[in-house]
Computed example of a mutant assay.
Amino acid sequence: MNYKNIFIFLNLLIGCIFQAQTLHLYGGSGQDEYLGCLNCDTFDKNSIWNSYSDYGNVFSSKSIWNGYGNYGSSYSTYSPWSSYASYPPAIVDQDGKFYGYLTLNTYKSERSELELAQVLCQYHDDIRKDIGGWYDKLFR
């Protein structure tokens, strides 16, 4: 299966599953630091896909895309991109339902099995380089 087919499949799947659910990321040791909306569009001020927002900007301290920040570094215990993270971000919907942790750490219990979480973990380095382009591939 090539990338284009994967993205078409994921777009359909994500659209069906998450059409009514707004998913949010919460980080920190107590999961009390808001890190943005996981599936909001690129114009939403809380979206991780909005490169002008606190949560989508690669230079923001609250962004999972900031490779040097607490929530985006491959070495931080709070980052989804650390294979050894103890406190990766939690995925929660607008009603407070928990969907697991967004993390590369395969030993973390309750690691999210959402298709979107798995795609983010697999392609996070590529996504960081073209956030808007990846949003289009995944959601449009």
Rank of each mutant, 00 (worst) to 15 (best):
M1Y: 10
M1C: 13
Y3L: 14
Y3G: 14
K4G: 15
I6R: 14
I6Y: 08
I8K: 12
F9N: 14
N11M: 11
L12M: 11
L13T: 09
L13H: 07
G15W: 01
G15L: 04
F18E: 08
F18N: 12
A20T: 15
L23R: 01
H24C: 13
L25S: 04
L25H: 00
Y26H: 09
G27W: 00
G27D: 04
G28M: 05
G28Y: 00
S29I: 12
S29F: 06
S29M: 11
G30V: 10
G30E: 13
E33M: 13
C37Y: 00
N39R: 04
F43N: 03
K45H: 05
S47V: 01
I48G: 02
W49T: 02
S51N: 11
S53F: 00
D54I: 00
D54F: 00
Y55M: 04
G56Q: 00
F59G: 14
K62M: 08
W65T: 06
N70A: 11
Y71W: 03
G72S: 11
S73H: 07
S74K: 10
T77G: 14
T77K: 09
Y78V: 07
S79C: 09
P80D: 02
W81V: 03
W81K: 02
Y84V: 12
S86F: 08
P88C: 11
P89I: 00
P89L: 02
I91Q: 03
D95S: 15
D95E: 15
Y101K: 05
L102D: 03
N105M: 08
Y107A: 15
S112D: 06
S112I: 06
E113Q: 13
L114P: 11
A117D: 04
L120A: 07
Q122I: 14
D126K: 14
I127N: 01
I127F: 00
R128N: 12
R128C: 12
R128D: 09
K129M: 13
G133I: 09
Y135N: 06
Y135V: 03
Y135Q: 05
D136R: 09
